[in-house]
Design a protein around this nucleic acid. Structure first.
Length: 291
DNA sequence: AACTCGGCCAACCGCGACAAG
DNA sequence: GCTTGTCGCGGTTGGCCGAGT
């Protein structure tokens, strides 16, 4: 395995895959003398390699405490958790996984976890739901049929056409609400500190619990709030308060405890960095949520 | 059986941080 | 403050190998 099968470079030092004899020399030397100076080690150990190559070989492959084999589910979740907070800080992530090297974790991330996140609909870098496509589609839909225009139109159409128009308005209102939910800063989705994939679940919960025709605010209310400032385009200003306009009045805290994400994010981050553990909800790993 | 393709992963490369002179 | 050497990190490469055709 490894890179190009070069036997030697310009300096005369060997490159490429390590031979068993070389491994033996390196192990033997380090067992006897340690590795206080990698630059001096190759010569002292009788190896025709650069110090860097020796260090890499030792830290990534020969070290006695290296754990080999497949990553466990716990390790996988730990990597996901830590990556959400630390990003590509493989060495820091590796420090929370005894026996695993940064190189191994990096490879595992690039070949497995990254793809898994993408398949689940998350951006592997931000760990946030990938909403670009949704936003794009919604914007197009909404630009095609202007909500204000529909309200004006309602005053003019014959009575028998008004039911159809109402249905259309209902669908538009749903679109607006969905768009609002997806972009609402209340959901901490725009917080730079919060990289919690939980967001999509919270959104799903919100939509499930509050997004039905009975709980929908009246079109008039929607319209008043959405267009209240300067007749400006729908999302060019801060969306209205969730409790004030979108949520049923009997539910003062529809978001529940999970939504204290913004406030907790700082200490949360520190805890994750320190302990390497976050309690993702089980359903986060439920593939059925993401077709 | 022969070939192609893509995943895997060990190893290399380049760069930044740091310490010593 | 500057230069030089060393170390460590993250990104990338490319040979190996198994699955698919």
């Amino acid at each position: 395995m490894g890179r190009s099968p070069l036997s030697a470079d310009e300096t005369g030092l060997k490159k490429g895959p390590w031979l068993p004899e070389e491994d033996g020399k390196l192990i033997s030397y380090i067992h006897k003398h340690g590795h206080s100076s990698w630059s001096a080690l190759p010569k002292l150990a009788g190896l025709n390699r650069c110090g860097k190559s020796c260090r890499l070989r030792w830290t990534n492959y020969l070290r006695p405490d290296i754990k080999r084999g497949k990553f466990s589910q716990e390790e996988e979740e730990t990597i996901l958790n830590l990556h959400a907070v630390l990003g590509n800080k493989w060495s820091m992530i590796a420090s929370h996984l005894p026996g695993r090297t940064d190189n191994e974790i990096k490879n595992f991330w690039n070949t497995h976890l990254k793809k898994k996140l993408i398949q689940m609909g998350f951006d592997p870098m931000t760990h946030r739901p990938r909403t670009d496509d949704i936003f794009s589609s919604l914007s197009q839909l909404m630009s095609l049929s202007n909500l204000r225009g529909l309200v004006d139109l309602q005053q003019q159409v014959p009575f028998e056409d008004q039911q159809a128009l109402l249905n259309l308005q209902g669908e538009m209102a749903k679109l607006q609400l969905l768009n609002y939910l997806l972009q609402a800063p209340h959901l901490a989705m725009s917080s730079s500190n919060n990289n919690n994939p939980n967001e999509l679940n919270i959104l799903n919960l919100l939509i499930k619990e509050n997004y039905n025709t009975n709980n929908l605010p009246s079109l008039k209310t929607l319209e008043e709030n959405l267009f209240s400032q300067n007749n400006s385009p729908i999302w060019s200003h801060e969306p209205p308060s969730l409790n004030q306009t979108m949520m049923p009045s009997h539910d003062p805290s529809p978001l529940g405890d999970d939504l204290v994400l913004n406030q907790a994010s700082s200490s949360h981050e520190q805890e994750v960095a320190a302990t390497g553990s976050v309690d993702w909800p089980d359903h986060l790993f439920d593939d059925s949520m993401f077709p």
